[in-house]
Design a protein around this nucleic acid. Structure first.
Lengths: 252, 252
DNA sequence: GAAAGGGTTTGACAAAGATCAAACAGGCGG
DNA sequence: CCGCCTGTTTGATCTTTGTCAAACCCTTTC
């Protein structure tokens, strides 16, 4: 794989990094490692790359060699059907891993696109496997991360298979809010990095439906929406909205 | 955790097993291991359990200790919302692993229910981690299995988020057919182990919609349906059906 | 072998969301 | 500062799927 091929997608501003100094280490792979173990992980995760907004970190079909930890920025992953339909499978933010889908076939199974200028740490997978044979805590944490992704996916299935439009959007907003909180940002106020269409794709809805749901939330005083800027006014109200449509007798 | 608690869900007919003699070893965890490595896996996977139709292998919330390899039979996994709605997240058959969702929080995140009398092999997870620190091939294969689950989940998201009812059902039938084939069964003729309602839950549809889609397929000569017995008459036709609803200009 | 019960099919109607269309807002480059 | 482009909002209408209801079928049980 010639590096020239890669450079079309990735701007090669390569920077030395160290997990041991990273303020995301409690969210990311280093979680739970000792000083000494961290130092060994540092040896492996030593390349950082900048990805500009709109650029691909990887594309479906490309050979898989590394996973990526998001150092800063925001990504989406999506899968494509032959006829052009696509489905956003997730939005990823700082501290989260990208590329786990590629392990299975040694080829990436989805596209990863930066939704804002971002930085990722490059983690060569075979070296990670080697190190995680040597460091139990790393091995276990990595397994947990993969498992968490499976659990998250099941949550999305629930969302897509059993919820109506407004419930899906409420779930989405609460999830974003919770993840921003975990990163030390406001839980009630943030900027969406994605378009209505991308939200719609993720939630299995058309952009018009997403827009209308936002308007309804605004009318009902649940959130204040100004384009991409979101202020959550009534977290409890949003939560309530989600559990209203179950079996007869369970509310509404 | 008292064993008496467990025995309510699981019939305890415990049998000695050996991966080395298992005819599923090319599908299951042992894939790619040497004779000597297989022998070491045998030491770990030595308990087999029978689960009767309708019984739970595990329930959401239970402490996670083991993953399970299906030796024979058929399972579904599902997740529940507080208000009673549920979503079937998958159907699993011989050679597939159950319980990966539990690694993340040390508690099972879904329910696993046998849809026919089944047998599973019990794989204590901490021992599997230990062994996979020692056997590279086992480690790598296990990572591939987890990754495959993530890729599969993304496929389900595509199905739920971007396909219409008949496309979902066609995708489902083709997937079953392909998995039966991989196990040496007929690709064109099989019995469904699940009800229309369970199919519907998995596909994000109501049972009536599933039933109508089956009827339509039958009218069009794509499949012959007799209750749970399915004969696929036109695989190509089913595949065609799936890619007809993309961007304008792509078919119909 | 009749009755009961779960699961399935089919029909008529209702509702959620999609589609089509138009207008609008905000940001950017000239 | 204007005009363009992209993304968003809103309205009117149509389609797909859900809901409710009845009949049916198959299996199990007494």
């Amino acid at each position: 794989m010639p590096p020239s091929k890669v450079s079309r997608d990735i701007s090669l501003a390569v920077i030395r990094t160290a997990c041991s100094n990273c303020n995301l280490r409690e969210l990311c792979l280093p979680f739970g490692l000792s000083e000494e173990e961290l130092a060994r992980l540092d040896e492996l995760v030593n390349v950082r790359k900048r990805i500009k907004r709109g650029e691909h970190l990887y594309r479906a079909g490309q050979a898989f060699e590394s996973i990526y930890a998001i150092r800063s920025g925001f990504f989406k992953t999506d899968v494509l059907l032959e006829d052009g339909r696509d489905q956003v499978t997730g939005f990823q933010m700082a501290g989260e891993l990208l590329g786990l889908d590629g392990i299975s076939t040694e080829r990436h199974a989805c596209n990863a696109v930066a939704l804002e200028d971002s930085e990722v740490c490059h983690i060569p997978f075979s070296r990670l496997e080697k190190l995680s044979r040597e460091i139990q805590a790393l091995q276990h944490h990595f397994h947990k991360v993969m498992s968490r992704e499976i659990v998250r996916d099941h949550g999305v299935m629930m969302l897509l298979g059993a919820m109506r439009a407004e419930e899906r959007l409420a779930t989405f907003l609460l999830n974003l809010s919770q993840r921003f909180t975990a990163r030390g940002f406001s839980h009630s106020e943030f900027n969406l990095r994605m378009t209505r269409e991308e939200i719609g794709s993720y939630l299995g809805l058309k952009l018009e439906t997403v827009s209308r749901a936002f308007s309804r939330f605004q009318e009902e005083g649940l959130v204040a929406v100004q384009q991409k800027h979101i202020r959550i006014l009534d977290t409890a109200g949003l939560k309530l909205l989600i559990n209203r449509h179950g079996y007869p007798g369970h509310g509404l």
